[in-house]
Simulated assay, not measured.
Amino acid sequence: MGDWVVIADYYSDVHRTEFIRRGLETREQALEALREALHTYTPSKKIIEKRRQVYRFPDQETYLVVITGKLTEWECTLRIAELISDS
């Protein structure tokens, strides 16, 4: 059994990685949580969403989410990862 997570990578003054979901037991659970987050995840910045575009990368485990707001456009990459070491 692994320890799977769903993460968001984005740039906001500096590169940031945010854990969306932690403690998922299987890859399948992580993929399901990832698919749910594609349409519900919002950045910590206050953005009034007018449009959301979701692009899937060929590996089927990574997505680019582009949110167009009233004044700005915001991009993040959502993906899954498995914890393989914790010392």
Rank of each mutant, 00 (worst) to 15 (best):
Ala33Gln: 05
Arg51Val: 08
Glu25Asp: 12
Ile20Lys: 02
Tyr63Asp: 07
Gly69Asn: 07
Leu78Met: 03
Ile48Phe: 11
Leu78His: 03
Glu28Ala: 15
Thr72Ala: 07
Glu73Tyr: 00
Ile7Ala: 08
Ala37Asn: 06
Ser85Lys: 15
Pro58Lys: 12
Phe57Gln: 11
Glu36Ala: 04
Leu31Thr: 03
Arg51Thr: 11
Leu71Ser: 10
Arg35Phe: 04
Ile84Leu: 12
Glu18Thr: 05
Ala33Phe: 01
Leu24Lys: 03
Phe57Thr: 03
Glu32Gln: 13
Thr26Gly: 05
Tyr55Arg: 11
Ala30Val: 08
His15Arg: 11
His15Asn: 11
Phe19Val: 14
Leu83Thr: 14
Ala81Trp: 08
Leu34Gly: 08
Gly69Asp: 06
Tyr41Gln: 04
Asp9Tyr: 08
Arg52Trp: 03
Glu82Thr: 05
Ala30Met: 10
Glu75Ala: 02
Asp59Tyr: 03
Ile20Ala: 01
Phe19Gln: 09
Gln60Ala: 14
Val14Leu: 06
His15Glu: 14
Gly2Met: 04
Arg27Asn: 07
Leu71Val: 06
Thr68Lys: 14
Val65Asp: 01
Val6Leu: 07
Glu32Lys: 12
Glu75His: 04
Phe57His: 08
Gln29Gly: 04
Ile84Cys: 10
Tyr63Trp: 11
Thr68Gly: 08
Arg16Pro: 00
Gln60Pro: 00
Val14Gly: 02
Glu25Asn: 14
Arg79Glu: 09
Arg22Lys: 12
Glu25Tyr: 07
Tyr11Cys: 01
Asp86Lys: 13
Ile67Asp: 06
Arg21Leu: 00
Pro43Gln: 05
Thr42Lys: 09
Ile47Pro: 04
Asp13Arg: 13
Gln29His: 13
Lys46Thr: 05
Leu38Phe: 05
Pro43Glu: 07
Asp3Leu: 13
Gln60Phe: 01
Lys70Phe: 07
Glu49Lys: 09
Tyr55Lys: 05
Leu64Ser: 04
Asp3Gln: 09
Arg22Phe: 01
Arg27Leu: 12
Ser87Lys: 12
Glu75Arg: 13
Lys50Leu: 12
Gly23His: 04
Ser85Cys: 09
Ile48Lys: 09
Tyr11Leu: 05
Asp86Glu: 15
Glu36Leu: 05
Thr42Ala: 06
Gly23Cys: 08
Glu25Thr: 12
Glu61Trp: 02
Tyr10Asn: 03
Tyr55Trp: 08
Ser87Tyr: 07
